[in-house]
Design a protein around this nucleic acid. Structure first.
Lengths: 63, 63
DNA sequence: CGTCGTTGTCAAGCATCATTGACAAATAGG
DNA sequence: CCTATTTGTCAATGATGCTTGACAACGACG
């Protein structure tokens, strides 16, 4: 499951720590998701979608 | 995190077992998600969305 | 050169998701 | 009434997600 987190974060000029704080998760979690080591839980995926104001399907990609 | 699985399943007249088979998960997993005992993983949420041919946001609801 | 911010990664531990096998209760159909 | 199907739930186990704390490598900047 790929994702566009790194790009979306770059567009906003946010550090991983900044995004992690907004999501209320650890910086390591953001990093792990970005580097594809694991997928977020569904509730966290919703929070991510909310913060970037776009549907989950536009952030996380099947494959 | 609420969801509309039970209704969507009823619309298609599928048993929990039938949906579980289509999703390639156990019947207990479908039941647990339907009865709100836990949320599916993001990959499973995508498979559910695919099977019902609608976005995740229309099946799973924040709250 | 030294320092700071950022990123990637590891380990250990706890929480959550998903499994199998089992059982009881409710429902539907013959 | 009898039987098969469906649903809800339990326990135990394994796989993932998320945490803290730590450390190394890098680029930017004084």
């Amino acid at each position: 499951m790929k994702n566009r987190l790194k790009v979306l974060r770059a567009e906003r000029d946010w550090s991983q720590q900044e995004l992690a704080t907004r999501l209320d998760v650890s910086r390591q979690s953001v990093n792990a998701i970005e580097t594809g080591r694991y997928d977020p839980s569904l509730p966290l995926a919703f929070r991510i979608a909310d913060i970037f104001a776009m549907p989950i399907e536009e952030i996380f990609l099947r494959k």
